[in-house]
């Protein structure tokens, strides 16, 4: 596996605040990585560093390039949709496609037109005339028509209704992702992307507190629903987090074999959302 993104000891300081604190990780080609973290955890700062929008300390390489110093080369092979990177409202869809074709060497006009033909977005419409969902469809179609190696999505579906959100991720998997391309995605709506991720990374207070593949998640973490004495016994195995669910205790364990816990109650793999809460709150406790 080739590593597309390599970060070693990456830090970013804003005045007294260490937004990203000595972070190291790798993203391999062909993966769909979810970067999950609460507000102010350093997600956006980290993404900006990856996209060369901000400088940082440490060693950061994206597609073998220094993102901050080799931005133009990087932008040929990287795309991003961010909630804050909105399409200009004054532009016509046809103008936007023409501009992309003229400035982006890896953009395919025919592919974009084909993708848009499945939507209600008309070529002569101005962006300001489109609904928010349609603008996102347009943006995703443009991005999908770029033969880029890495796609970065920062809260791409913020403010969209559930139908557009489902469609967005459906299109992302069907049209964009081909096993060769790589996606890095952040969102608060973890439940919606849980099933499409191959890798997951949690970030909190500027530090990475979890970095694993979805496949190995089940082997590392388990959630036990137990009550009464069983809950007390389970507690001796050192759950990283515990909460009350309908009078029972839901405990999340890290690195405890399932055989040891199997007799104590109902066992399952925690959802990403639950695991996230466990990691963040557990660390705080």
């Amino acid at each position: 596996m080739t590593s597309l993104v390599t970060a070693r000891g990456v830090s970013k300081r804003f005045g007294d605040v260490l937004a990203v604190d000595n972070v190291s990780f790798e993203i391999e080609q062909g993966r769909i990585m979810g970067l999950i973290g609460p507000n102010g955890a350093g997600k956006t700062t980290l993404l900006k560093a990856l996209l060369g929008l901000t400088d940082c300390d440490g060693e950061l390489s994206v597609l073998g390039l220094d993102p901050f110093r080799q931005r133009k080369e990087l932008m040929r092979n990287i795309c991003f949709i961010a909630d804050v990177a909105v399409l200009p409202r004054w532009i016509r869809v046809s103008q936007l496609l023409n501009f992309m074709a003229a400035t982006h060497p890896n953009f395919s006009m025919s592919r974009a037109q084909e993708l848009l033909s499945h939507t209600k977005v008309r070529p002569d419409a101005k962006v300001r005339q489109l609904s928010k969902g349609m603008v996102t469809q347009l943006h995703l179609s443009i991005i999908t028509a770029i033969d880029a190696r890495l796609l970065v999505l920062d809260e791409p579906t913020l403010g969209l209704d559930i139908i557009f959100r489902k469609e967005f991720y459906g299109n992302l998997l069907n049209d964009y992702f081909d096993g060769e391309r790589t996606i890095l995605i952040t969102t608060h709506q973890v439940e919606e992307i849980e099933n499409l991720l191959t890798d997951i990374m949690f970030i909190n207070e500027g530090r990475i507190i979890l970095d694993t593949t979805m496949d190995s998640l089940a082997g590392q973490y388990s959630e036990l629903m137990a009550s009464g004495d069983n809950a007390d016994k389970a507690r001796s195995f050192g759950p990283i987090f515990e909460r009350d669910v309908f009078g029972k205790k839901a405990m999340v364990f890290e690195g405890v074999s399932r055989e040891q816990l199997a007799d104590l109650g109902e066992l399952r793999t925690p959802s990403v959302a639950d695991l996230f809460v466990a990691k963040v709150k557990g660390a705080a406790a």
């Binding site: 996209l51 929008l53 931005r71 133009k72 080369e73 932008m75 040929r76 795309c79 991003f80 961010a82 804050v84 990177a85 909105v86 399409l87 200009p88 409202r89 004054w90 992309m100 400035t103 982006h104 060497p105």
Partner: peptide, 17 residues
């Protein structure tokens, strides 16, 4: 205008310096 309408990050996401 590109900052007022927040399109600057879109423009900067293209391979144009």
């Amino acid at each position: 205008a590109e900052r007022r309408d927040k399109s600057i990050l879109f423009w900067r996401s293209l391979p144009v310096t």
